[in-house]
Simulated scan of single mutants.
Amino acid sequence: MTDPSTFLPTFVSVVCLVAYFLPTLSAFYREHPSRWPIFWVNLFLGFTLLGWIICMFWALSEISRGIRRANVGTAMEHRFADEEDEKLLQLRTLLSDGVITENEYDVMRQTPLSAQS
């Protein structure tokens, strides 16, 4: 059996480790596109309060912002990208609710938005 006097230090160490990597855990949970850079910055600069705060804000930042920034163009292109994101979100919801099958999801996902209107 383990010594009960080692439980509290071990528990506190695990809690501190989880708190230290909270930005990284959040980024991986949310499938942030920059999750690996967030991990590295968190690992090497997280011990400074400023580094940890930067990582936390970065991990909690809007994920789709990077997609919009990559599609530099007219306002109409941005609107189309937003509608496409909304379409994919609706399709994923229908799939997870069991309303459509995996095959239907694949077909509908590949159909251009303009063809569905």
Rank of each mutant, 00 (worst) to 15 (best):
L88R: 06
E83L: 15
L22T: 01
V99W: 06
A70I: 10
Q90R: 15
V18K: 10
G66W: 07
L49N: 02
F39N: 02
F57K: 11
L113R: 02
D85E: 11
M56Y: 04
W58R: 13
F44H: 13
L94Y: 09
L49E: 05
V107S: 13
S13G: 14
M56D: 09
S26H: 12
Q110H: 01
C55E: 05
L113C: 11
D85Q: 01
Q116Y: 02
F47K: 12
N103H: 01
P33D: 08
S117K: 00
R79M: 05
S13T: 15
L50H: 04
Q116N: 11
M1H: 04
E84S: 15
V107M: 08
L91H: 03
T10A: 07
E77V: 15
N71Y: 06
L49W: 15
N103W: 04
S13L: 09
L45E: 03
R69K: 12
P112E: 09
F11P: 13
M108F: 12
V99P: 09
A27M: 05
L8M: 10
S114Y: 03
I38Y: 03
N103E: 05
N71I: 13
T2Y: 01
P9F: 01
A115Q: 08
Y105V: 03
T48A: 04
R69L: 12
R79D: 10
A19R: 02
V99T: 02
I53N: 12
G51N: 10
F11A: 14
S26M: 04
L49V: 06
P9N: 11
A75K: 15
R109V: 02
P4S: 06
W36G: 10
E104Q: 14
Y29F: 11
G73I: 05
A27P: 14
T6Y: 00
D82N: 12
Y29P: 00
T93M: 10
C55Y: 02
S96N: 14
F28N: 07
I63G: 13
L45Q: 07
L22D: 07
C55S: 15
I100M: 10
E86T: 02
C55K: 14
L17C: 05
C55H: 13
A115E: 05
D82P: 07
E83S: 06
S117Y: 02
I54Y: 14
I54N: 10
A27L: 00
F7T: 04
V99E: 12
L113P: 02
A19C: 14
F57N: 08
D106P: 02
V107T: 00
F39W: 05
H78T: 09
E83K: 13
I54C: 06
S61N: 01
N42V: 11
S34Y: 15
D82W: 01
V41E: 10
